[in-house]
Design a protein around this nucleic acid. Structure first.
Length: 115
DNA sequence: CGCTTGACAGGTC
DNA sequence: AGACCTGCCAAGC
């Protein structure tokens, strides 16, 4: 639906493969909203949504400023999936683990907006 | 109906 | 390199 931004976000996040991560900005770009909305939507995401696979564009866990237990939870879940961390909140080789919706490959770079 | 709040991003200083 | 500022826009109150 038009206003079902949350649903879009959840569905897209659910597509992130196990052991991979995605940036808020990438999700936002694909869904057609802003990165803040992604984080905001994920703060109240239902069960089954791999919210822990979404990190900021620096490859760090942006959550946990107020509630650092969430940060540790996210880190634990990612480590369990095989993601390595150089620091307690910094993913090593972020570019390697990064996953993008609709695989860029060669051709699809002419379109600025997907769908 | 309007101000505040965010699990961000990108730029500037 | 790190602190700070601004844009973004749906939901909450």
């Amino acid at each position: 639906m038009a206003g079902d931004v949350f649903g879009k976000i959840f569905r897209l996040v659910a597509r992130i493969p196990r052991g991979r991560v995605c940036a808020y900005g990438d999700i936002a770009w694909k869904v057609g909203t802003t990165p803040r909305h992604v984080g905001w939507a994920l703060s109240g995401c239902p069960d089954g949504v791999p919210w822990h696979r979404v990190v900021n564009h620096k490859g760090q866990l942006s959550i946990g400023k107020r509630a650092h237990y969430l940060r540790e939870l996210q880190r634990g879940l990612l480590v369990k999936e095989g993601v390595r961390f150089s620091n307690s909140d910094n993913i090593s080789d972020f570019d390697r683990y990064r996953w993008r919706p609709r695989i860029p490959r060669r051709a699809s770079r002419t379109s600025k907006k997907p769908l």
